[in-house]
Structure formats: structure tokens, C-alpha cells
Design a protein around this nucleic acid. Sequence first.
DNA 1: AACTAATGTCAAAGAAATGTAAAATTATTG
DNA 2: CAATAATTTTACATTTCTTTGACATTAGTT
Lengths: 223, 223
Amino acid sequence: MIKVLVIEDHEEIRDLISYNLSKENCETICFDNANEGLIHLENNDVDIILLDLMLPGLKGMQFLQIVRNNKKFSGVPIIIISAKNTEQDIINGLEMGADDYLTKPFSIKILIAKINAILRRNPAIKSKVISINGINIDTGNYTVTVDGEDVSLTNKEYELLLMLLKHPKRVFTRNQILNAVWGYESDVYTRTVDTHVSSLRKKLGDKGSFIKSVPKIGYRADI
Amino acid sequence: MIKVLVIEDHEEIRDLISYNLSKENCETICFDNANEGLIHLENNDVDIILLDLMLPGLKGMQFLQIVRNNKKFSGVPIIIISAKNTEQDIINGLEMGADDYLTKPFSIKILIAKINAILRRNPAIKSKVISINGINIDTGNYTVTVDGEDVSLTNKEYELLLMLLKHPKRVFTRNQILNAVWGYESDVYTRTVDTHVSSLRKKLGDKGSFIKSVPKIGYRADI
DNA sequence: AACTAATGTCAAAGAAATGTAAAATTATTG
DNA sequence: CAATAATTTTACATTTCTTTGACATTAGTT
């Protein structure tokens, strides 16, 4: 069952979405404001968010920003559904981190197809444990252990480790790492990645050596 | 550099996309038909595909189907850009495996924002493997194996091997190799190529002997 | 066979990229 | 608002890669 969080202040639209998604193996939870939506998100599993922009109280774009800046939620896909339909509105929404943007009035069937297209690619990342060669990452509570010992990582170190270990052996360029961990519009010097690799290796101790540099390209988890 | 494959039969639209994406850290390769696009995809790294539907010869939807049914490519995101704008067209496109659907006329800025939104989620692009006579090159990961054994190559050695094996039997002059591997404006002595051929042969062991020198001309992969 | 011209190879010199500690800056928290 | 932690930059050390030049070897020519 796909869990859809709907944040939309018009009742008719909420009902329309709710009714139609219920026929598509979806469970919808609706709120007419973003504050409550955020609270729900904090306390429940959500697979995808449908977000209106013009809301009373906390605005849609603020909600988007909060969610995208929180590593706990940043993986949850968001589709904006809004009456704001200028080119700039759409670009802003996408650049702020939305995965798609539908302008009102919208086709419910297209919405469903888009939800499926997005989820097809992002099988909801549930709390799970990645465990390789003595290194354990519990993505549910953001903890890492090495040979059973807790290791305290900073946010960036954690995200970097996760990225590398999600695809062992795969080479990531410094720019790919920057995009994924720092965000696509960060203007950070690529050597910053090196610094974080260095401190990550140090914190991982003996095991840290699995992070190999690939000259002229980037890094990989050789594990 | 993001590699964008554009399949679109209208020259003006190809040019528009090409010109604008070139300013966004993208390298576009365009074809006016899907057959050639497919051949390109088979032989090159592609990060994302922009696909028109109404094409001469192989139709866009057939192309989509072929790509999605091929494990090798199924990870490559596809955005359909089409004049077919009915609800059913869009739903079909998305259900067939497209990641997004833009109707013509479209905003180039929105296209760019959508490409970024999609790639933000999929940093890990499936890599292409070249495999000849026991030599395997994983072009996404910059790894090479010979008879299953990992062989560690430097960047120049890797690029050189890749160039030779992309076109087996074909002779490359030292200057062609310099241009392709070292870049047009490098002022390196042509004998440097020989040195790299030498160390490459050595690292490839017995298999290394497939790199034949062609007296007075250059080298080729005789394989 | 001797000569010429090209390619093969090695090791030292040079260039470039990465590693890392520590300082500077920025965010977070009490 | 101070204190603390995290992040980014800087600067220098270290490692690795690249290029060169010398000499060896091979192949082709006369």
C-alpha cells in the first residue's frame, strides 16, 4: 500500500484525489495545512507527498524547503499541484526540490501516472540497515557502527558514507557527490569532498581504507 | 558533464535544446531518428534521453519499449517531448516507462529544471560495459578486468585502452590518440603515446599483445 | 651484414592530484 | 549571546601519475 500525504486546502480537490487514489492501491492522508502535514510526516511513514503551494499558515514552498533540508525526509518524492502556473513558478518549485509540478486544473489520471512513474524509480526507502564488511548503517535512526562499535558521524560524513555504500564498487565523481550530498546548487569547492573523505576514513579506523580514490575521477567504496 | 541524448526530427527544436543545454554543463548528442539514437545508446554513455514521439522510421513509443525492456539501459531516465498532448497520450507515455512528459510547445527553462530534478534523484547511472576477448571495461566505473582479474590502470592508460577497444581493428595515428586522450591543446611529444602503450601492454599481461603497432602510422587493437 | 629508422622499455625528473592538519567560517544549541 | 560543533578553506605534505630522454631492440633496406 502506497502512503500518500496530501497537503491541500480545497476540500473538493482533497476528496477528488483521495477518492481516485483509493482505487489505485494508495492510502491517502490529507491535511488542509502544511503544519499538520509536517507533524504527520515526522511521525509516520510517507511514500510520496502531493503539495499545494497557496496555503494558509505555513506556505507550500516553506514546507518544501523544510522537508528538503531535513535528511530524514529528503528522500520522499514531492509532486507540487498548484494553480501557480507561470514558467517561473514551475522552475522555482523544481529547483527547490520538487520532483514534478502539475498545474491546476489537472487530470487525475495523469497525476496517478506521474505518481507511479516517480515511485517506479524511487522504491520508497524504508528504514533499513545497510551492512557490509562490519560496517552497519541504520538508515532509520542514522546510526553507524563499525565492528559493533558506535561511530559518531556528522551529517555530511553520514550522507557521504551512505552514498558510497549504497552502490559499492561504483565510482562517483566529486561533482556527483556534491550534488547528492551537498545539493545541486551548492557552490562548494570540490576539494571539500576530499576533506570529508579524509575525516570519514579516520573515524572508520582500519575499515576506513575501503574508500578508494580514483585518480582524476573521484571515489569509490571498494568493498 | 551530463550526457543528453536527443531524438527529435525537427532541426529547430534540436538546435534549441542543444544550444541551451550546452550552457548547463550538458553535452547533447542529437539524432533525427530513433534507430540511430538506439545505436548511439548501445555504444556510448548516456545520462538522460529526450525523446520525441512522432518520428520517421522507428517510432518513439517503440524506442521507449525497447529501451525499457533492455536491462542494460533501463536505468536511463527518459523525458518525452511531444506534440501529442491528450491526457491519454501522456498517460501512455508515463505508463510505458517515461520519467516525465512535456508537451510542445515547451519552455526550455522548465525542461532544464526537469532534467535537473530527475538527475538529482538518480546520480547512479547504469554503466556500460565493453567486453572483448576477456578484457572488460566498465565505462561507468573506470574499472578494467582481464580474465576476471582486476587490473588497475591510470587515467591515461584507461582512456587509451577505451579508445582502442571502442573501434577494434581500426588504426589510430599517434596524433589522433593525443587529440582524443590528451586533448587538442596538449603540447605533448608523440612518443609519450608509445610509453603509455608500453605500460598498458605490460599491465594487461599476456592479453596486452593485441595492441599492435602499425609502423609509421600508430596503433590499433587487433582483436 | 651493415645501416637506417622506427618502436619498445626503463628509470629519473617533473607535474599533478590527493591526503591531512589546522585555521577560518558558519550553524547550532543551551 | 556565548559555547560548541560542523563545515569549509587554506596550506603544505605526500603520493601517484605523466613525461622525458636515454638506450635497447626490432624491422626494413641496400
